[in-house]
Design a binder for these strands. Structure first.
Length: 271
DNA sequence: CAGAATACCTGCGGGC
DNA sequence: TGCCCGCAGGTATTCT
């Protein structure tokens, strides 16, 4: 579910509620996520103070006085801020109770997400160390993308969704950015010239930035930290719009599969 | 080595 | 109404 804008929306929503707060207790109802939640997590977190929350790709990094909590939302995860309580919703796997009696609730029906703990530099963690560049940073530019396209033989859509090249662009925003750039996702990455790479980079940044402003996209599971849906689903140009008219030229949107992922495009606007 | 397929898991919508 | 199939905002691991 959550791509970069949803993770960033979550981060921004949680920050004012938990920064400089101390964790008073931790309730774990389900240890089996993508990887098991460390047995030591409860002990490690209890009494720790949350200093800041940062983001690397789709990972949230809770930097505390005693180590870093890493959270990934997988496909169906959400993080909510709720008043402290004693009963739990279905799939509410973890509750982190903060001193001001509010709880950070981790809910994830499919359990593809992860909750991990490290005392080391989190950026050296196995899962973060090999991630590609941040799409909204200056290092993600036309030159970088063009160099990458020359090194790989896959399609342009699969390339921009490869988190080891650029991290945070998932299926929705890959589809939307390619539409905005007028590029068909199935073309080989190494057939895209520098000028089109410049345009695609701009399109990715534009789509992600707008989606963050609109608090992300809610198709099914995603909710902001207050439990409300995002707003970007109303701005989608192609994702999920098979057979509906293109918003630019009215040609029916087509669908195909690339790397096992649904791909939506306008056959006239995207070449 | 790169690229493609598989695996993890639950819920839901469509077809019969 | 109910069962079965395929699909869903991800990505590490295994395969070819």
């Amino acid at each position: 579910m959550p791509e970069l804008p949803e993770v960033e929306t979550t981060r921004q929503g949680i920050i004012p509620k938990v920064i400089n707060q101390t964790i008073t207790s931790v309730v774990i109802n389900q240890y089996d996520l993508r990887w098991p939640i460390p047995k030591t997590l409860k002990t490690a977190l209890t009494g720790a103070t949350i200093k800041q929350i940062t983001r690397r790709g789709k990972y949230l990094l809770f930097e505390t006085s005693s180590g870093t909590l890493l959270i990934h939302l997988g496909m169906s995860g959400r993080l909510l801020i709720q008043p402290k309580k004693h009963t739990f919703a279905k799939h509410e796997h973890v509750n982190i109770i903060i001193a001001n009696d509010c709880a950070l609730c981790y809910i994830d029906p499919r359990r593809f997400g992860a909750i991990l703990w490290t005392k080391e530099n989190p950026h050296e963690h196995k899962l973060l160390k090999h991630l590609g560049v941040e799409p909204l940073e200056r290092e993600f530019n036309g030159t970088y993308l063009f160099n990458q396209t020359q090194k790989h033989k896959t399609t342009i859509k699969q390339l921009i969704m490869d988190s080891h090249i650029v991290t945070g662009v998932g299926n929705i925003y890959a589809n939307e950015a390619l539409f905005l750039a007028g590029i068909n996702g199935r073309v080989p990455a190494n057939s895209i010239n520098k000028k089109r790479c410049d345009l695609l980079v701009k399109s990715i940044k534009k789509v992600l930035t707008k989606a963050i402003k609109m608090s992300g996209t809610t198709i099914r599971d995603f909710a902001t930290s207050s439990g409300k849906p995002g707003g970007f689903q109303n701005a989608l140009q192609v994702y999920g719009r098979t057979n509906n008219p293109c918003k630019k030229c009215h040609t029916p949107i087509q669908e195909l599969r690339l790397g096992q992922r649904s791909t939506f495009f306008c056959p006239k606007c995207q070449m």
